[in-house]
Design a protein around this nucleic acid. Structure first.
Lengths: 145, 145
DNA sequence: TATTGTTATACTCTATAACTATA
DNA sequence: TATAGTTATAGAGTATAACAATA
């Protein structure tokens, strides 16, 4: 889509980013990543949201993923079958089950992110200095405080 | 996610953009936009992909949307029921049906894009000049040749 | 009794196959 | 016969409701 008359710079930047991110090419890459580790799209999203060494309760995952607890059960079942995650029951409260990513899961996640975070070829239209400026600006938007 | 050791600037920029775009907040805004015009997520995606004055055949939509023709039928049915699109059969070939967005559909699309293209509040961490630089860099990435 | 997770069930999204109309 | 679109049907993805175990 071309430029819109009177569009504010910040708004246009956001629009162009959205168009990049939701392009068919980007979606294709997501599906390729799924195929590479033999996971469905929702399973893949779940896997990449898990951090090594952080055992997190199913109920917490349901909130983080904005889905029902029953859906978490199914997703974790699938990841567990592939050996990507492990369920544990903490002694403190035997009702809850915590999920943690395994070494195998970490490898799969790395493989996936290697693909997903690879910028599109058109990034090369920016020289090194421009890429650094772009990075710094987005870093600033992302800053915590 | 924080910075990764040795990550190339272009790659980090892309990663940070992806994290912004696929954040739960951004997804929430998409669902809000759906509710605002009473459309399901796939119907909304379909609507925003239609340009005023461009009557396009169902088969072409199927390719553009990367889905089966039968799915296009259902989506267009839904949009037509709300008066957002219109089907026409060109005299040249009475097998095909072309879809075009209506005035009502254009209004709904504008309402949706007004929400979707609104940058997140954190864009204000950049001053006006920085926002222009960001916009120009992403424009450059998006340039056609 | 209240809470965590699972199972059973139903509803939405999407594809494949069979069908109708036109070319 | 081949092609565009629709209908019928089946398979994923996701939610709600009923249930079991623990607190």
């Amino acid at each position: 889509m071309a430029n819109k008359g009177g569009e504010q710079p910040g708004r246009e930047a956001w629009r162009l980013m959205a168009e990049l991110m939701f392009s068919p090419q980007t979606q294709d890459r997501f599906h390729d990543a799924c195929a590479a580790v033999d996971l469905s799209p929702p399973q893949l999203k779940a896997l990449v949201s898990l951090e090594p060494g952080q055992a997190v309760a199913m109920s917490v995952l349901a909130k983080a993923w904005r889905c029902d607890a029953s859906w978490v059960t199914g997703i974790v079942d699938g990841l567990e079958q592939q050996g990507f995650v492990r369920r544990r029951t903490p002694d403190a409260d035997r009702r809850v089950k915590v999920v943690e990513i395994t070494k195998v899961g970490e490898k799969a996640k790395a493989k996936v992110l290697d693909r997903l975070y690879e910028p599109p070829p058109s990034i090369a239209k920016l020289d090194d200095e421009e890429q650094r400026v772009l990075r710094d600006l987005i870093r600033k938007v992302r800053e915590v405080p």
